[in-house]
């Protein structure tokens, strides 16, 4: 009983700690100034603590990653669940879990040395460390969760639905996309939401490829800073109000994640029904 409660305590502890350490800076800076301030200059003589650039970057970055990662992951999942030979399916599932297991710093390293110079050359920009590089890395990193969850949802579609559709003269491909996919839509939606959570919470890989300058994300080639990287990049040398502001950023990130978790649970519950 006590052991079970430890988990609850952990969650409460994390929430309470984040709220307690996050509130003072927001109070001092002012909620509106903090959330909608367009400038972050924490080390300037007249420090400014506006995190709108980080919020927008995280939102754009996640949206971009979803835009690229979801179609690819979804199509792969349909193929693996419905069309692939069992052998191919098991080999591919192994490859996908490998992709999920690769540490994020390795993605960051490869991104730093392949993607960043690549973007610089192809688009002829001065620095390839940009929002675009981060979007591509994030799209790759969310791919395994999307594929895995979509396959589970698609595998659970009752065979009778498909048989009925086939018997009515639909081709297999039509059946999969017009019968199986709609039947599995809650599960696939959950996969997308899980991807959003992964993308918005990722720190290290993004830190290595996004350039880490607190700009507003006006273009794909801008060097930007995410909510997660804002916390980690200044934590080592911060103090006073600056440090408290970092905790407030973490609080904002935490709220985002809680919102995403609630959405995820909603879809998962519907899938069960």
């Amino acid at each position: 009983m006590l052991l079970g409660l430890i988990t609850v305590c952990c969650v409460l502890l994390i929430t309470v700690y984040l709220v307690i350490s996050g509130i003072p800076a927001i109070r001092e800076i002012g909620l509106v100034n903090f959330l909608f301030g367009k400038e972050w200059a924490s080390t300037a003589s007249d420090p400014k603590y506006g995190i709108l650039p980080f919020i927008l970057t995280s939102v754009y970055g996640t949206a971009g990653a979803i835009l690229i990662g979801v179609p690819v992951g979804f199509m792969t999942a349909v193929y693996l669940s419905k069309l692939a030979y069992p052998k191919v399916k098991s080999v591919m599932q192994f490859a996908v879990s490998l992709l999920a297991g690769i540490p994020s710093v390795v993605y960051g390293l490869v991104g730093m040395l392949v993607l960043v110079p690549g973007i610089r050359k192809i688009f002829n920009v001065p620095d390839g460390a940009s929002l675009l590089a981060a979007i591509i890395v994030l799209a790759i990193m969310i791919l395994p969760s999307i594929i895995k969850m979509s396959i589970t949802a698609l595998d659970a579609v009752p065979k009778e639905y498909e048989d009925a559709s086939l018997a009515l003269g639909a081709t297999p491909i039509e059946t999969y996309f017009k019968v199986s996919v709609p039947a599995a839509k809650s599960g696939i939606a959950a996969a997308v939401v899980l991807g959003v959570g992964r993308a918005i919470g990722e720190a290290m890989a993004v830190m290595m490829v996004a350039g880490n300058v607190p700009n507003m994300p006006d273009s794909l080639f801008q060097s930007v800073r995410f909510l997660t990287t804002a916390v980690s990049s200044e934590m080592a040398y911060s103090s006073g109000l600056q440090r408290q502001a970092l905790f407030s950023i973490a609080l904002v990130l935490f709220l985002f994640i809680m919102l995403i978790n609630a959405t995820l649970n909603f879809f998962l519950k519907r899938e069960k029904e």
Binding site: G4, L5, T7, V8, C10, V11, L13, I14, Y17, L18, G197, I200, G201, E202, A203, T228, V231, S232, M235, F247, A250, L253, F254, I257, M258, I260, N261, L264, N265
Partner: peptide
């Protein structure tokens, strides 16, 4: 409640764990 807490824990990004 405990199961919900466990699910919440597994969704929290590692940077927040680091901070806490």
């Amino acid at each position: 409640i405990i199961e919900y807490a466990a699910e919440t824990l597994s969704g929290i990004p590692s940077i927040i764990y680091g901070l806490v």
